[in-house]
Design a protein around this nucleic acid. Structure first.
Length: 572
DNA sequence: GCCGTTTTCGGCCCGACTGTTTTCAGTCG
């Protein structure tokens, strides 16, 4: 699948054209890149079918370029552009306060090509002498570089969500906050988060902002004004707060939630109706005599635009606006629809809590059932259990089930799919379990064909109910291994094997795009935490969010079912 | 470079803030 390669090349072209001060083309390339990135099909397949120009934002010229990339793996136009700009553009763009104009200025006047050059020039006081620059800008650039270095990559949603919630609670404790919401990519439940955006309604803006800058996890106040402020938190992430008028709360929430491309499309819908949409509301009339027709809530704005309400997790401009206009939005699975969690580890393998502790924690979360799925097999990873130990554990589970009320514990196991496609445990043992997970834990570097074959043959096994974390990726750490999704989804559907959405913060695997494709292919999914401690069971909402981002409905997720019905969906 | 219930040509989302200016360009969200 070359989609991400094509998108990357187009993003880079957009950046370079912007530096060259070319008008409008950068937007065109970005739009195409974004559409290709979120395509559910391999771009080479679309090219083979000669349907490239059906992709929104792709016309004759870009279609030709895609064909060249698919054919040769690169693009001459892109290579030529790069030659005229020997600059690490992505690196420089990542510095806050620097855009295309400054990058060009720095390169033309000082020959700055990368972050290191820029830092050096800032240190030596060379930037301040350039036109349009001054001491303050130079200092700000230097500080942004330091901050970027210290905080590194984007933070995982699973770790930042609790921080954002703490801030929200901290603000509510101030007593003068009438309404508060965390917006931004957190509200859209993106896998990784750049910063935290908080919106408040208050009659005492100054007091609220003072309270904000004095919250206990604030490390440094970056900016502080009458209606907004930015701070750096001890967790190494920035947090913005904005005071909003009640009449604009919905439009502001919409605007700051994004995504940016979703907003742009909405504004186009407004323009078509002769209106204007901004963070202050939806307006009719000319500039001199404009009248607010909506803004208090998101719902009324969508309604006025002729659209059904779109859940934040779906606002990525991947067809949700068209679907909302046609009243064809799916009713996506809710955060309270999950009845149980089937993947978790205990002290029997590499978990830190006992079976009983896990059961109590799950019950407290409202689960009706859980499954203990410790590692099993001969592969010496993660304290795998032998067939003998499995026997013992099953008896222990029987005992706990007898004494605990209100939750049912299933007997399960996570078995390795070995490099030769065989399973790491005999069928005779698997047969006795309620739920069998199979997953790849070794040989990640095999070819796409081999890895696909391993997973497919595991699915063909009559005892394997679920494929755990099907692509093996670890966010910001390890890329997904390449597999043939068409083949995997087809096999899953045919054999009745369920695919997992692993809710662990750095996995979220299948990811949202895969989820959407899997559902389209007719697969059933399950959301599990893969908890290695009782605390981890809370991660379930990250998995639900991933399902929602992939447009999954309740009927697509098997652990929304009561236990009896769930057992019928499993293979035996 | 793309696209069309204003258009096959002439548009392309909108507003605020910051730091540099002396009326605004660049950047951000």
């Amino acid at each position: 699948m070359k989609n991400s390669l094509v998108a990357k090349i187009f993003y880079e072209i957009a950046d370079m054209l912007e530096i060259k001060d070319v008008q409008f083309k950068p937007q065109a390339y970005r739009r195409a890149a974004q559409a290709i990135e979120s395509l559910s099909k391999p771009i080479e397949d679309v090219a083979a079918e000669s349907k490239l120009e059906e992709i929104p934002g792709v016309g004759e010229s870009i279609a030709k370029k895609i064909e060249e990339i698919v054919r040769t793996g690169k693009l001459k136009y892109h290579e030529d552009l790069k030659k005229s700009f020997p600059i690490k553009i992505e690196e420089l763009f990542s510095v806050e306060g620097i855009g295309p104009k400054k990058i060009k200025l720095f390169y033309d006047k000082l020959g700055i090509k990368n972050l290191k050059d820029l830092e050096k020039a800032a240190k030596q006081g060379k930037l301040r002498e350039l036109p349009g620059m001054g001491e303050k800008s130079e200092k700000q650039i230097f500080e942004s570089i330091q901050f970027a270095k210290a905080s590194g990559q984007r933070a995982l949603l699973g770790y930042i969500l609790p921080v954002a919630e703490e801030i929200k609670e901290g603000m509510q404790a101030a007593g003068n906050v009438d309404d508060i919401e965390v917006a931004g990519s957190i509200r859209r439940m993106k896998e990784t988060i750049g910063d935290i955006d908080v919106l408040v309604v208050t009659k005492q803006p100054k007091k609220a902002i003072d309270h904000f800058t004095n919250l206990k996890n604030v490390d440094k106040v970056v900016a502080k004004g009458p209606s907004r402020s930015t701070v750096r938190l001890k967790e190494g992430i920035e947090c913005d707060i904005r005071v909003i008028e009640p009449r604009s709360f919905g439009s502001a929430l919409m605007y700051f939630t994004g995504s940016k491309t979703h907003n742009i499309e909405l504004r186009k819908v407004a323009i078509k109706k002769g209106w204007k949409l901004s963070e202050y509301g939806l307006f009719s009339g000319s500039k001199r005599k404009e009248k607010q027709i909506a803004g208090k809530t998101e719902k009324e704005i969508y309604a006025k635009l002729g659209l059904k309400y779109i859940e934040p997790e779906m606002r990525e401009n991947t067809g949700e606006i068209e679907a909302a206009a046609a009243n064809k939005l799916p009713k996506i699975v809710g955060y309270k629809d999950i009845r149980g969690d089937l993947q978790m580890h205990t002290t029997w393998s590499d978990g830190v809590n006992t079976i009983e502790e896990m059961a109590h924690a799950a019950k407290a979360l409202g689960h009706e059932y859980i499954c203990i799925s410790d590692h099993v097999g001969t592969l010496k990873i993660a304290g795998s259990m032998s067939a003998k130990e499995i026997e013992k554990q099953m008896k222990e589970i029987d005992k706990i089930n007898k004494k605990m009320r209100g939750i049912e514990i299933l007997k399960g196991a996570e078995v390795n799919i070995l490099s030769d496609s065989s399973l790491d445990l005999k069928d005779s043992v698997l047969k006795g379990l309620d739920v069998v997970f199979a997953s790849v834990h070794s040989g990640f570097r095999q070819s796409k064909e081999q890895l696909t074959k391993r997973i497919v043959s595991a699915m063909e096994n009559e005892h394997v109910d679920i494929i755990a974390h099907p692509t093996g990726r670890l966010i910001e750490k390890r890329k997904a291994y390449e597999v043939d999704f068409d083949k995997i989804f087809e096999t899953a559907k045919r054999t009745g094997t369920i695919l997992e959405i692993n809710a662990y913060p750095d996995r979220l695997d299948l990811n949202a795009d895969n989820v959407r494709y899997a559902i389209k292919s007719g697969c059933k999914l399950i959301i599990d935490t893969d908890a290695h401690s009782a605390d981890h069971l809370r991660y379930i909402r990250l998995g639900i969010a991933t399902a929602r981002r992939g447009w999954a409905e309740k009927k697509d997720i098997v652990n929304t079912l009561p236990l009896k019905k769930l057992m019928k969906v499993l293979k035996k």
